[in-house]
Computed example of a mutant assay.
Amino acid sequence: MKNVRTVAVFGVLIVLALALGLFTRTDAPDSPVPTVENTGPQGARALYLYLREGGKAVDTRLTPLEGLASTTRTVVLAAPQGRPVTEDEVQELERFVRGGGTLVYLSTREMGKHQPALEEWLALESGVLLPASGRGLDSSLTDVGGSTVDVWLPVGPLHGLSHLRVSQDRGLRMVHDDAVPVAGLGGAVAVWRRAMDSGEVYVLAGADLAENRRLEMLDNLRFWDALAARGPLSFDEYHHEPAPPPPFARGIWVFVAQVLAVGLLYTVSRGTRFGAPRPLRVERHRSALEYVRSMGWLMRRAKVEKELLPELDQALRQQMQERLGIPLALSDADAARLLEQDGGIPASSYLEAKADLERTQAQPSVTPADYARVARGYAHLERALAGRDAA
Rank of each mutant, 00 (worst) to 15 (best):
L141W: 04
L218N: 04
V151N: 06
A179C: 08
D177R: 09
W121T: 09
R193F: 02
S133Y: 02
P181K: 12
D178P: 07
M196D: 12
L185S: 10
H159L: 06
T102F: 00
D143H: 08
M217H: 08
V166W: 00
G146K: 00
H114R: 04
L118P: 04
G156V: 02
P154T: 04
K113C: 01
E110A: 10
H176M: 09
V128A: 15
G184Y: 01
P131C: 07
E200R: 06
L158C: 02
D178S: 10
E211K: 01
W152H: 11
A190N: 13
L137T: 09
L153N: 13
A205H: 08
G136K: 09
L137M: 07
S198V: 12
L161G: 04
E125R: 14
S139C: 06
L161V: 05
V155H: 03
Q115S: 02
E200G: 03
L215M: 01
G146H: 02
G101Q: 05
S147Y: 03
Q168F: 01
A210N: 01
L204R: 04
V180T: 14
N212V: 02
G146L: 01
V144T: 11
Q168S: 14
D138T: 14
Q168E: 09
K113R: 11
L122P: 03
A179D: 09
V149I: 10
E211N: 05
V151L: 04
L141M: 12
L185C: 07
A179E: 07
L164G: 01
R109C: 10
